[in-house]
Design a protein around this nucleic acid. Structure first.
Lengths: 334, 334
DNA sequence: TTGTACGCGTTATCAT
DNA sequence: ATGATAACGCGTACAA
């Protein structure tokens, strides 16, 4: 059905190795045979079988990218960056989404190993989970790069400075005169959420300001959770004056709940988010994160490892986060 | 480095075929050897090599998904649906984005064929381009499913009823008293854009209403283009009272330009979009499209073909589009 | 310059 | 119940 180099050998009367050599642009073949091979390949619609090639050359020309959520713009931009670099290297990428579930993450990684990808880029769950599957990768000598850092694991890591991001938003809100501040945490498996919250707590403590536990929400994920929390706040007897949301998606959910209830952001509640996603019209003050650049950096570093271009120590890159002030925080200073 | 079944054979003193048989749960092995094999595999961290398996079994356990834009929620939801179905089948998916470029689409498809994916789901450019690469797939007997229909190509196709969507929005806008209506077309390679515009023209003609060419924009793609067109309209001496945008992303761009200029939607311009993307707070009247469901249907159908579960004729599914009225269209009836 | 032979890790088909 | 052997399609020494 599919013509192989053996077929071409039979057809041209040449040897398999000759066909292979010509097709791979090796030197040392007469122009005549070269032409003959190329012509036969063309005529019979020869398509190299990369599976066979991979088996023999021990390289599949594909990498795996494990993200948490396909529908979150945050990961879209990381994916885009990775894809671009992969393409530049003639590579193809398996995209896997863990859906924020640890078991799924493990399953995907194991599948990638079975598929013998040349390398892996992983955005793993980082809190409250075991890392055995990642350590296993190391033992198997699989090249990989992490979005996040795992204690005791020596590998290339990329991080966003979530603690500093959390600090920036908290100080921004305080600077605008707020003291009753709520916080919507993400999933407990999210280190980003933990760090942002830690920073919030630290800054509040430093100013001697109390944190009202009734205004701290946990385990929020996605638009629907944001909306539900928003509805809770709409009905709350004592609302905070400002709310820090783990990410923009949640923030948008909260805002929608407020708009639906006929309330105003920021008049009835000031809100900030993280990620600075662009597909929105609301002037949401948010923390910008260089996801696209990080995606490219992840890609470059992985290929450095795969091709052993960089034999130095592992890299640990920390990307800055930058507060983007718009108008979702009301200045209530006297 | 990686232990193989040959290694296990040597270790256990059994034959390769026995190892393979046990590992694949074939019947006809004594409980004793079964145990022995499993134990050895466990101890030596055996991981099956799916590349080798694929070479021998002529199936790679992976499919390719070719979309146009990773960062557009429209394709995110299709991707999500496809991924879910693939996962249910124990399959893995290569995600490729053409970035709306024909050459890139061709490149990706050729790469997928070389990688010998078991099947392909493609959202191809549909207008103003050649389809030779798709017909080639057919000749190569590669199972594939299309989002869109190609003249003269017999295969499974899924479509969204863009013409009807265009009709619905146009009639909705007319019903709200508008007559000076602008239209932002998408890329000329987009059939969806063409059909939506055709419907617009047809409805306008039927009502005897003129279309002002100054208010028809073409080749718009993405947020930035939307913003630029928005700025143009802000400064225009004679604005339309309503604007139909090819998709929500463009619509959001236009809205942003208006908000930046201190103008109001819908007071200064009524706007509708397509896709009904959810990550936004603006009450944009839009046309909802069942992308997630379509993604699942695409997946199911592809696997039907791959496993030859359905030997009947090709399917041609048309998904309805549904207008979702919010408040971005102002009623200016007297 | 071209051809032969073997390896890559599996599965499948025979025998035994 | 188990083992030997041949594919699968390609790359690559090594030989001619």
């Amino acid at each position: 059905m599919n013509t192989t180099i053996s077929d071409l050998a039979r057809i041209t009367g040449l040897a398999k190795s000759t066909i292979s050599g010509v097709l791979n642009n090796k030197s040392g073949f007469s122009e005549k045979t070269r032409r003959k091979v190329l012509k036969a390949a063309e005529e019979h619609g020869y398509v190299p079988n990369e599976i066979a090639r991979g088996l023999s050359s021990r390289s599949t020309g594909s990498i795996g990218l494990i993200i948490k959520d396909i529908t979150n713009p945050f990961y879209n931009h990381i994916t885009k960056g990775v894809q671009e670099i992969a393409r530049e290297h003639g590579y193809t990428v398996f995209l896997c989404s863990s859906g924020e579930e640890h078991d799924t993450e493990i399953e995907h990684i194991e599948a990638m190993v079975r598929k013998r990808v040349d390398g892996l880029i992983i955005a793993p769950l980082l809190e409250d989970v075991a890392f055995e599957h990642i350590f296993a990768l190391q033992r198997q000598q699989m090249p990989f790069v992490l979005l996040g850092k795992i204690p005791g694991l020596a590998c290339d890591t990329f991080e966003f400075d979530d603690y500093d991001g959390g600090r920036q938003v908290t100080e921004h809100i305080l600077a605008n005169g707020h003291t009753r501040i709520g916080f919507v945490c993400g999933l407990k498996t999210s280190r980003a959420s933990k760090l942002r919250y830690d920073a919030f707590v630290d800054v509040m403590n430093k100013r001697g300001l109390p944190i009202d536990e009734r205004h701290v929400f946990r385990e929020a994920n996605g638009l629907a959770d944001g909306q539900q929390i928003g509805r809770l706040l709409v009905d709350a007897e004592e609302r905070p004056t400002a709310l820090i949301c783990f990410d923009d998606v949640i923030a948008i959910g909260v805002i929608r709940a407020f708009m639906d209830a006929g309330l105003s952001v920021p008049d009835d509640l000031s809100i900030v988010g993280f990620d600075d996603i662009d597909l929105t019209t609301f002037p949401l003050t948010s923390v910008s994160i260089p996801t696209y650049e990080a995606g490219k950096a992840l890609g470059w570093t992985l290929f450095d490892r795969i091709f052993q271009r960089r034999l130095t120590d592992y890299q640990h890159i920390m990307f800055d986060q930058k507060l983007v002030v718009r108008s979702s925080v009301k200045n209530i200073n006297p």
